[in-house]
Nucleic acid binder design. Structure first.
Length: 1060
RNA sequence: GGGCCUUUAGCUCAGUUGGUUAGAGCGUGCCUCUGAUAAGGGCAAGGUCUCAGGUUCGAGCCCUGAAAGGCCCA
């Protein structure tokens, strides 16, 4: 062997070190993309192609980006990149969410404000100016992260929700709803944050549930007609008791009057649900004096606990309600219509007064003299004390339950009756559900599960927000007659007001200053005070990002609806809903056709990562160490997209070790040898592929087929994991088995085929990897393709997706090679058991595979197996043989499906056969017949597996039906050859440690024990060829030589070498 | 309280239309290969597939119920 290195005078690949600094490599690629403007080229190049529409769910840049943002952006990125390579035109406009309470809160914090009055005193104008700045306070970090991770979105044209054009489009949408009577003002009990001074939307409330310890009090409501008898009610909000208007009972529940003793010995009677008596009274003695259905309680009057507020309607009696439960409490429910949604419903039904004892600031009104100005929660103990003093408190305690808190400021929410604005989504509930049926959800269960259920139970969208920094609700109302008008454009407002408002900032307080004369009564029209829910902002982006319909009508039509959107599952009721609701109400259309709903990233403890918990991992901890590709790859391959995942930085590092480096080293190997050989890609070369090449190409095109299908199905796992498997096989089987083909001297057809095959695999891989690992893909492509073909697209991201060549996909070949790999693995296992290192040649290895085909396969792949296992010969285990006995394994899959309940009997019958005889028939491809349960069954060879068991004298390893049996006897020749290989190994090692180039020629001097010397002599040609030795001699190594002494197999070798 | 999801080795996760001996990677211990490799190969230890019923010739997988965890909604 040995080789001549041919150096072509022509072009070469850039040499590649087997070591790679991925971070440095990625940064160089980023630079290249920027210089050549590759992203924009990739979009522009596909103009005229079918469009692939992606919508960006806008983040707010007023906080640091976290790993969960990298997760979302990784998945947002991969499909548009793929589609672009498939020829689609995919502009991806970025976007920024800029309005809303989170921004206001940050500014308030900065200013040290704690309530709305301070903001108004400071000036809404100045406050909003600070909000505008704050919304982008981390914009640079966001842009840096976006850029660094390789998320391609058009940030220069990114939409910004605070721009006038954006707001005007929202106004137009709202006017459209207004005209359809879908926008209305109503009164409703809403979750309300007394600190922020605003109602919260349902999705906001959802963000703030937490365990809370609250009072748990049982209170007596004395009956007017019988003061010794009390209705016993239960509440966790004593502060609502001054607003009590009624007690609710379930009409069909059985109630009882219970007599019990008081501490002072007097008796009292309490009314409560029968089912709860034991729970409430526990062990204490009591007598049930009367039973009645809830209906019988209706209208009973009781003495109000408090009389602070004047009543405009009759109150303080028992009313009937179906929602009353006997789960907890007493079965009699304290009802305060102002502070509970159900209470309000009941109040409307039976005409109760809405008793408001508390102001919007969460403090008691002046009328409530004992607690005037006290925050409600702070008043709880004092209220309980007061009730106790008056003998009305039956029991007090505490309860831990989940209660909603303001998601930003952690203040406990009140349920509070307030006027507010709604979108009448419930009217189109059926359309919301129907259109959702046509959306592809990934994972699928969201569609009819979380999202579908939410739509099916749709309630009107509470739109109004009594805040400052947001899109103003464009409704003007006459101060005199109450007439309301909705304004749908700046032009319309200009006309009404008689002023040119083109330059008007559409935020508060400026829009608030625009008034005009009421068309009906000549009073003055003022804008109502509310802003709108920020979710409406982001849900309007399909229209507002284009300033539709005022501009860009064509662009809008081309870019609606989206083919693809992606956010985490917490957006189900957020952005996913707001997009869907708006487009349903506005256009009767879906807004997105495919949606990936990502699982949340959890921390190591399985807790959600959130800023408030302080367990957010900074993306820079990963990006700076392992780079973007590994980060992305980990996110794609770790678990299905929709599944929540525990995040660990270590696992990202593993990607580098097991995937990136494996591929990189294969690439580096290829480049270095191709350069030494002067091999260059030649599309027109006729290639004679070896069976190993054919297998690799079959596996490669199988991979192209599968990965393509996966991308078409939005299956990120299936688009990436098979690439890992392929790269592993490429490196650890194809390349390992082909090394000699690259190393050998002759530049024959076989070597050409090896280069062509490996080259095809690497180039194809670079394209398959491009959407997922955009940097590494680019690096490979630039060197492998661009170095030689100046006409090729200048980036892999401008290239076309690889076309699968089904003609080279050979499933049979794939299966056969899988078997060969398994046999090789078993051969290694057998060697291991026999303690025969691979360097020691052995005479023979025999295999059994349990099928009739085995002989052919072993023969066909004999060269691979002999070489891999370092044996002189391989063969199939002989059925008649000295070496084996057989057992039979009736295959349940085949036989069970075919014979159903008869299978156990057949199985028994097969096991009762003479195994040697049956095995012989089956291995010859013949049927065997068994009798079971009085019937005769003809069993086919592939219905019964034949398992070989080796007898004495072999080193054996087996798995399932496959078996490798190794002849371990050594003769003198084998021993000498083994020793020679040890010598080669020592010299190669020494070459490496001495820092020689692969192609350097050397001279060698050695001393060895006699047997070793004999081996060196016998295998001199082999040794010198392997090690590129031009001169070898026996003797003590010279001064200038690198030297090593080593002992093995009872022999000792000292060898020295120097460059020849 | 309701909805959705999850539960498989110490950790992170696979597990095809149900098929009888449940896998991978990481980690641990031992052995081994190598002029591409930060790697590779082999062996070993490590499992009541959360639990209880049911359907079936056969259940990690299907059905019912329960438990724990997560998310969403009340």
């Amino acid at each position: 062997m040995g080789r001549e290195f041919l150096f072509s005078g022509g072009r070469m690949f850039k040499n590649v070190s087997p070591k790679v600094d991925v971070v440095k490599m990625e940064e160089a690629i980023l630079q290249m993309w920027k210089e050549k403007d590759i992203f924009h080229k990739s979009v522009k190049q596909r103009e005229g192609g079918p469009s692939y529409v992606f919508f960006e769910g806008p983040p707010t840049a007023n906080g640091h980006p976290g790993v969960h943002h990298v997760l979302a952006r990784s998945f947002k990125d991969m499909f548009p990149r793929y589609k672009t390579m498939r020829g689609y035109h995919s502009i991806r406009r970025g976007g920024w969410d800029t309005h809303g309470l989170p921004v206001e809160i940050e500014v308030e914090k900065k200013l040290g404000f704690t309530n709305k009055q301070q903001i108004e005193a400071y000036g809404i104008d100045k406050f909003n100016a600070l909000c505008r700045e704050s919304a982008f306070s981390y914009i640079q970090e966001w842009e840096k992260m976006t850029d660094r991770m390789g998320y391609w979105a058009d940030m220069e044209t990114a939409y910004v929700t605070y721009k006038n054009s954006y707001i005007e489009s929202i106004w137009w949408i709202l006017k459209n709803f207004w005209d359809k009577d879908l926008l209305y003002q109503g009164f409703k009990v809403v979750p309300y944050c007394p600190r922020c001074g605003t109602p919260l939307s349902d999705h906001e409330v959802a963000l703030g549930y937490d365990d809370a310890e609250d009072p748990s009090v049982f209170v007596r409501m004395r009956l007017i007609d019988d003061p010794d008898t009390s209705l016993l009610i239960w509440t966790t909000t004593p502060w609502t008791l001054p607003s009590n208007a009624a007690v609710a009972a379930h009409p069909d529940v059985t109630y009882v009057v219970v007599e019990r003793s008081l501490e002072d010995g007097r008796k009292e009677k309490l009314i409560m649900a029968e089912a709860l008596v034991a729970k409430v009274l526990g062990d204490e003695p009591y007598t049930i004096v009367k039973k009645m259905p809830g209906k019988a309680l209706e209208g009973m009057k009781y003495t109000p606990l408090y009389n602070f507020i004047k009543l405009d309607k009759p109150a303080h009696f028992v009313a009937l309600a179906d929602y009353v439960s006997t789960e907890d409490g007493t079965g009699l429910v304290h009802t305060a219509p102002a502070y509970g949604a159900e209470d309000m419903m009941l109040g409307n039904a039976v005409g109760l007064p809405v008793i408001q004892a508390v102001g919007p600031d969460g403090k008691f009104l002046p009328e409530v003299t004992p607690w005037a100005g006290v925050f409600i929660k702070d008043a709880d103990p004092s209220i309980m004390d007061d009730l106790k003093k008056r003998g009305l408190l039956f029991r007090r305690g505490t309860i831990v339950h989940t209660y909603p808190f303001c998601w930003r400021c952690k203040t406990p929410l009140l349920y509070f009756a307030r006027p507010t604005w709604y979108i009448r989504t419930s009217r189109l509930k059926d359309r919301l559900v129907g259109l959702n049926d046509t959306i592809n959800w990934y994972p699928g269960h969201i569609k009819n599960g979380r999202f579908g259920n939410w739509l099916a139970n749709n309630i009107d969208w509470a739109l109004g927000r009594e805040r400052y920094w947001g899109t103003p609700l464009p409704v003007w109302q006459c101060q005199e007659c109450g007439k309301q008008e909705c304004i749908g454009s700046v032009e319309e407002l200009s006309k009404k007001s008689g002023r040119d408002l083109k330059e008007l900032d559409l935020h508060r307080p400026h829009v608030d200053n625009i008034t005009y004369t009421c068309p009906d009564c000549k009073g003055t029209m003022h804008r109502v005070p509310e802003l709108i829910d920020v979710w409406f902002d982001s849900g309007s982006m399909p229209y507002a990002q284009w300033h539709y319909p005022f501009e860009n009508q064509k662009e809008f039509k081309e870019q609606f609806p989206a083919d693809y959107i992606c956010e985490a599952v917490d957006q189900t009721r957020g952005w996913f809903y707001s997009l869907h609701a708006i487009s349903t109400l506005l256009n009767d259309s879906v807004c997105f056709k495919n949606v990936i709903c990502l699982g949340l990233i959890l921390d190591g403890e399985g807790q959600k990562m959130s800023k408030s918990r302080g367990n957010v991992v900074s993306p820079w901890d990963i990006l700076d160490v392992h780079g973007a590709d590994a980060f992305r790859w980990y996110l794609y391959t770790a678990s299905p997209a929709g599944q929540e995942r525990r995040f660990s930085a270590d696992l990202v590092g593993e990607v580098i070790r097991t995937f990136t480096l494996t591929l990189w080293n294969t690439y580096s190997f290829f480049v270095n040898y191709a350069n030494l050989d002067g091999w260059t890609p030649d599309k027109n070369a006729k290639v004679e592929y070896s069976p190993l090449d054919q297998w690799l190409r079959s596996a490669l095109h199988t991979l192209v087929r599968d990965v393509t299908n996966a991308y078409e199905n939005y299956d990120s796992l299936a688009a990436t994991r098979p690439i890992e498997t392929f790269v592993d096989q490429l490196s650890n089987w194809y390349l390992r088995r082909s090394r000699r083909r690259f190393w050998k001297t002759e530049s024959d057809a076989d070597k050409q085929a090896a280069y062509a095959t490996l080259y095809e695999a690497l180039v194809t891989l670079s394209k398959l990897l491009a959407p997922a690992m955009p940097f590494l893909a680019e690096e490979l492509y630039q060197n492998l393709v661009r170095s030689f073909d100046p006409n090729a697209p200048e980036s892999v991201h401008l290239a076309d997706w690889p076309e699968v060549d089904l003609s080279v996909v050979d499933e049979k070949l794939n299966r056969e090679m899988a078997l060969v790999m398994k046999l090789a693995s078993l051969g290694h296992a057998a060697r291991n058991k026999a303690n025969r290192k691979v360097r020691q040649p052995l005479a023979e290895c025999a295999f059994s595979t349990g099928s009739a085909e085995e002989g052919r396969i072993i023969k066909q792949y004999a060269d691979i197996l002999t070489d891999e296992l370092n044996v002189k010969k391989v063969r199939a285990l002989n059925a008649a043989g000295e070496a084996v006995s057989y057992s039979l394994n009736p295959l349940p899959k085949q036989l069970g499906q075919k014979y159903g309940p008869k299978f156990p009997a057949i199985r028994q019958a097969v096991l009762a056969l003479n195994p040697e005889e049956a095995a012989r028939l089956l291995l010859e491809g013949k049927n065997v017949t068994v009798k079971a349960a009085g019937e005769s069954f003809e069993l086919l060879p592939d219905e019964v597996e034949v398992r070989a068991n080796a007898r004495e004298g072999f080193a054996v390893a087996n798995e399932g039906a496959s078996l490798a049996a190794l002849v371990t006897d050594l003769n003198e020749d084998l021993i000498l050859e083994g020793l020679a290989r040890e010598v080669v190994r020592r010299i190669q090692d020494l070459r490496k440690t001495a820092g020689l180039e692969i192609s350097d020629r050397i001279q060698v001097l050695y001393t060895a024990t006699p047997k070793l010397a004999q081996a060196v002599e016998a295998y001199k040609e082999y040794i010198t060829a392997e090690t590129l030795t031009v001169k070898i001699g026996s003797g003590t190594p010279a001064q200038n030589m690198a030297v090593v002494t080593d002992s093995f197999d009872g022999e000792t070798l000292t060898v020295g070498l120097a460059k020849a």
